[in-house]
Write a protein that binds this DNA or RNA. Structure first.
Lengths: 149, 149
DNA sequence: TTCGTTGTTGCAACTGTTTGCAATAAGAGA
DNA sequence: TCTCTTATTGCAAACAGTTGCAACAACGAA
């Protein structure tokens, strides 16, 4: 069963109406091989039909995030991206200095997520989240000379 | 030495100019006991002087984040907050459904951050970051009845 | 102290995102 | 199939945040 049908079934089960606009947005994000910005999703939808408004794209993406079917990550520099679990869970290491984004495996975090669930009753859905820090290149540069030297 | 003087010294060392506007913003965020939105920082600055523009507040906060002196976290619902290390590092567990935000200790993540540094050369500066998921109450509700039933 | 360089600022325009509301339409029930 | 309820949509306005640029001013050198 194609991935987007899974999403549609889940939304239907949760009482949401399935409109052609929603199907379009879901199809685009579900079949994407990597995360996309809302503007990219909108542009892809516009290739197929002009009958979907940007506000509807934002609303549908937010609905998918709220229902745990997609995740949203701020990668800095105005890059807010959406992704589904189909992309495979991973985290983004975002350099706060140069903006470089590096992907990292989320598996090592899983014991920690179980710990959080035990302590807080909170279930992490961390398909894509961002951790900010400093990349190797920027650290090397900072050690060599004071910035703005 | 008050915290804000540390920030100012660090910026000066990195070659940034120290303007009255920047001192004002730094003083507000450095002395705050908890994280603040940019709008809250701006309002606090406005109590003292009207000679600081909102754009300057954003620029100064971004500068502090870029220099590792503050961190920025998106807590959902339009809540983007800034905080300094003085607030004590902790992570925010944000429920994607109801928006509840729960703080959690960052200490259990530290071995993982060392692992990331070893694997990627990337140094996490995780004073405040957000992990999205589902809180205990929303999970209980979801198990009991399908949403939007 | 003065002067020159250049980083910084305020402003208004712009961008990405959200929101109020009337019109539209999905879908359940008869 | 039809009707009614109400969720959803498109639209334009609004909002949070960013940006280009001329004016201002921090700061180092003389």
């Amino acid at each position: 069963m194609p991935h987007c049908h899974t999403f549609i079934a889940a939304l239907r089960q949760h009482g949401y109406r399935i409109t052609p606009q929603r199907e379009m947005v879901i199809e685009v994000i579900a079949h994407s091989r990597q995360h996309m910005t809302a503007e990219e999703v909108y542009a892809e939808v516009q290739k197929r039909t002009h009958a979907v408004n940007i506000a509807t794209v934002y609303r549908t993406l937010d609905l998918l995030v709220e229902e745990g079917l997609a995740s949203r990550a701020d990668l800095g520099g105005g890059q807010v991206v959406y992704a589904t679990a189909a992309h495979g869970p991973h985290i983004h290491l975002v350099c706060r200095q140069c903006g470089l984004v590096v992907d990292a495996d989320v598996v090592p975090f899983e014991p920690l997520f179980r710990q959080i669930e035990a302590a807080h009753g909170f279930v992490c859905s961390p398909q894509h989240f961002a951790i900010y820090g400093q990349c190797a290149a920027c650290r090397a540069a900072a050690d060599a000379v004071p910035e703005r030297g």
